[in-house]
Every structure is written in C-alpha cells, then in structure tokens.
Amino acid sequence: MEAAPQELVLEPAPEPAPEPAPETKDPPFPAPQQKPFFKQKYILSGHTKSVASLKFSPDGSNLASCGADKLIKLWDTYTGEILHTLEGHEEGISDIAWSFNGEFLASASDDKTIRIWDLALGTEVKCMQGHTSFVFCVNYNPNSNLLVSGGFDETVRVWDVAGGKSLKVLPAHSDPVTSVDFNHDGTLIVSCAMDGLIRIWDTDSGQCLKTLVDDDNPICSNVKFSPNSRFVLVSTQDSTIRLWNYHTSRCVKTYVGHTNRTYCIFACLSNTKEKYIVSGSEDHKVYVWNLQTCQVMQALVGHRDTTLAIATHPTQDIIASAGLEKDLTIRLWFDESSA
C-alpha cells in the first residue's frame, strides 16, 4: 500500500536516519529476556520498486507481495524461496488479498482495475473495472464470494467475484479511501480514508451504520477488524495506532512509539499464543507492541527505508515486512524461542 504515488513525489523524503548498526540482529531494547524474540531469518529480494502490500496465505505457507513494479510475487514462507511472479497490471499495485482457501488472489492497482489471479493456473481470470481512479485497497469476505475495494475516487465498492460485476458503489468518503475490511461473518464492512473517518457499513444493504472519528481527525492509514469483530484496529498518520470499540465509539487501547506521518503504513494483529500489534514505521524499524499493556516489546532493525507493508502469520510467530525504494527487500522475522 503505497501512499498517493503522485503526491508522494512531492513529499520531502524522510531523512534516512543513519542507523548505528543497521544489521544488528538483536535490537538493544526492550529487556531481552522478555518475549517476543523475533529474529530476521530471510531477506527476499526481487521487487524493483517499492513493495506496497504483503499478505500471508490463509494456511500461512505462502507470502504474496506486490508493489509499484506492477508485479505480484509469491514466496515460500518457510524457505524464503520465490515461487511465482504474476504480471498483467499496467500500473503499480497497491494491495492484494487471498481468498479463503488460498485458491485466488485479488489485486488492486493504479490502472483502476482489480484483477483476480488463479494461483493453480498462474493466470489472471478476472479483470474488474469500475473505479474511476486508483484502486488502493481490497479484501475478500470470509466466503470469498464478495470483494470490497476502496480507491482514490473516494468510493467503496462491493464486487461479485464469480461474475466480476460491481454490486454496490458506496459514496463512502470525501477523500481517498485507504483501507477496507470485512468482519468475521461478512455482514459488516469497515472503511477508512484520508478524511480521517472510519465508517462501518452493512454489507447487505450498503447502509452506513456507524462513523468513528478521533478528535484531531488524523488521516487514517489502515483499518481492520479484530478476530471476533468487536473492535477495529486503526492506524493514523499522527503516529498512533488505536483499538476502537465501535459499539461504544470508545478508543480502548492506544499504541505509540513508531513514526507515521506520511505513508499508509499497515498495522497488524499477531494472534498466536501471545497477542501483539505489529506495525511499520518511518524510522525504518518494525514495532511490536503487547496488545494489552500497549508497551513496545520489540523493535526490529534491519530495513534501510520506511517499512510500509507488514503481515503477520496466521498461526505462527512470523512477521513479514518490506521497505520502500531505498531498501526494496522483504524480510521474514521468526520468533523461534518457544519452538
């Protein structure tokens, strides 16, 4: 998910703070005797431009990446080897999503299309047109018969996957939509945008059910439902990640410590035995918080540029992260301390 490619150029690139020891495997803080112990295991290189999104397959065996180089790459999670490269998009790709059984991959691109890829065949099987500007985010519903997407045309769209048709166009926001997600049973959609609003929609009727807004209206980068869909995790460009109870419209947890002022950085929930919040940062590190205490448990050092795309493994303590232009690598971090 690469923030506003056009506008991006105009932004003064954040100074690459010279890392004292960029390849340090064990960051000095926090207290090293406390979990987690994520260590860099693989460096995956292949992308020639910024990596915009990373997603683990539902069973965790594969990692998909996409980026400004118009390519989708599939990697083996456990060996770090490249498996496939899918090409077809005419512009950079901002987001990807896996169908529930790992059979298909959907990609959202600046060429205004969403494409669906059959991974067994390794080919494009659907190209869905309708967005009038860059498509920035995409996600499947749990049954994978619907897709939701958001883009720079400020709409949220719901798509019939099998038919490749647009089912609903929600005039959702007044600025580019940066992130969309379905809840665990697919009845709700959450969307957030650069207008600083987080809205919850009824999938069936397309009605807006709730709007969450923080006092200062910071630009929203990324949103997702918690596994039980009682909360939404929102990262905003005031360098803060918040966990909202959307029933009561109250923020129940706040995670700070990282830097996020410019890009739409992903925030993820690692829901294995221990529960962490994981996010990239513009200081080139990857931050890991304890879900409950909101303390930074570990900061992963290694990347040489802003870490934008982050993914957490569905069942194991594995984090994938990717850096922007000056870095271009995808790194896999494993916590093997309990194994």
């Binding site: 947890k253 706040t254 929930l269 879900l291 909101c294």
Partner: peptide, 16 residues
Amino acid sequence: RKKEAEQEEVDIDTIE
C-alpha cells in the same frame, strides 16, 4: 484518565 480507561483488558477472540 484516558490512560486509566485503557488499562482494562480487551478480548479480541471470543465471538459473542
């Protein structure tokens, strides 16, 4: 006060 309110544990797994 906000910090205090955030002390409470959250349950992100149990589906009602």
